[in-house]
């Protein structure tokens, strides 16, 4: 039994994605499926070869650091979800405050002012200079 290293888990997930792609092949007409079929086959073969190959030692970062990255990634995901719910300004402001608080930035003037400056400068840059309409909230929205 091969040892289940992080790399092998990554390869298993990749194999699952490839499997999901292969289930779609039957719906694709002739003439449009030959090229992706070849890519799928080669990808599958390389996944298998990489899986059975002796694994290189993996660098560990410790549980505490892994948890920090995980929570920051979750915070990012929540802020992306909230972009269309409460709009750019509130979602970004809350993400920046939450991020700085979670990453333990010293609570001085920078901590309180930086999120407001960043959020508003990006808002004005995109909406006024670059003419991009930033997401507005469906729950409620704040626009300037």
């Amino acid at each position: 039994m091969k040892k289940l290293t992080g790399n092998r888990v990554f390869l298993l997930v990749s194999a699952l994605v490839l499997f999901a792609f292969s289930t779609q092949l039957s719906k694709i007409p002739q003439g449009a499926k030959e090229y992706p079929l070849v890519l799928l086959i080669v990808s599958f073969i390389t996944v298998v070869l990489l899986f059975i190959k002796p694994q290189q030692p993996e660098e560990t970062i410790g549980k505490e650091n892994a948890l920090r990255i995980f929570i920051f990634a979750i915070l990012t995901a929540i802020s992306i979800f909230l972009l269309t719910k409460i709009g750019y300004i509130l979602a970004t402001l809350s993400f920046v405050y939450a991020g700085l608080w979670y990453l333990k930035l010293k609570k001085n003037l920078v901590f309180y002012l930086f999120p407001i400056i960043l959020t508003l400068s990006m808002y004005f840059l995109f909406t006024r200079v670059l003419s991009v309409i930033l997401p507005m909230g469906t729950w409620f929205s704040l626009t300037l």
Binding site: T76, S79, I80, G99, L118, T119, M122, L134, P135
Partner: peptide, 27 residues
């Protein structure tokens, strides 16, 4: 501080990818 750098990049990346086609799918 790296805390500030981290949030700046996430905000730039999110808003930047949204602005390509103004689509949440891109974010």
């Amino acid at each position: 501080p790296k805390q500030i750098l981290a949030v700046i990049i996430v905000v730039l990346a999110s808003v930047g990818s949204f602005s390509i086609q103004q689509s949440m799918m891109d974010v």
